[in-house]
């Protein structure tokens, strides 16, 4: 599906290209959903309970984060144990299996309204196109966020044998721009 969406985008010179069709937009969304529903994303995109997941390595699909971690309303564990107690805010090769991953940013959970864990494709589609539930982003801002976020970059290169979402970050941005150009369609739209 990814190849299909990207090929559609690349097949025609941009200047001569009409807005992508709804079908093309939906194909691009499928590529986006393949990433946003992947455990590398949903392990932290959890709901208001603030309990991160450890789906990956040998832990199993339903494994919650060890150490009884509660990120709390602060989403950084300020009420209990800060994320940064273990996830140091510094660039790292993240080469040691089972050691906490680190990036050059403050480790944290996304806001609760950005919960993706367990969401269907259609629910997540509606959520991501709405600034009320996508952290206030217009689509071009969301693309910039993908390109500049240390978290997103780490998600595609998490190290130490951790699973990675399908495709590359560049392909994700292409799919997002295509979906946006098509009017952010969702499958259940009339």
């Amino acid at each position: 599906m990814r190849t299909f969406a990207v090929a559609l985008l690349l097949a025609t010179p941009v200047a001569a290209q009409d807005a992508p069709t709804k079908a093309q937009g939906l194909a691009a969304w499928d590529d986006i959903y393949a990433v946003t529903s992947h455990p590398r994303c949903t392990n932290c995109h959890v709901g208001a309970d603030g309990i991160p997941m450890w789906d990956g390595l040998t832990y199993g699909a339903d494994a919650v984060h060890g150490m009884h971690v509660l990120a709390g309303e602060s989403r950084v564990g300020a009420e209990t144990m800060p994320c940064r107690t273990c996830h140091i805010g510094a660039q790292s090769g993240n080469a040691t299996p089972h050691a906490p991953p680190m990036i050059d940013d403050a480790w944290r959970l996304p806001p609760a309204e950005l919960a993706w864990l367990g969401k269907s494709s259609d629910a997540l589609c509606a959520q991501l196109r709405d600034p009320e539930t996508n952290d206030g982003f217009a689509m071009d801002g969301l693309a910039t966020h993908l390109e500049t976020s240390a978290f997103v970059a780490w998600g595609f290169d998490p190290g130490a044998g951790r699973s990675v979402p399908p495709g590359t970050l560049d392909e994700m941005v292409v799919a997002l721009n295509l979906w946006a150009a098509a009017g952010t369609p969702c499958a259940s739209d009339p």
């Binding site: 150490m67 107690t85 273990c86 510094a90 040691t96």
Partner: peptide
């Protein structure tokens, strides 16, 4: 443990608990 799984190495950096086995000296 050397991988932040046990907490025995915990120190404070500016008052915040940190696993010192994970924090590189240069950081």
């Amino acid at each position: 443990c050397g991988i932040a799984q046990c907490g025995a190495c915990t120190v404070h950096v500016d008052g915040v608990a940190v696993r010192s086995c994970q924090l590189a000296a240069g950081d």
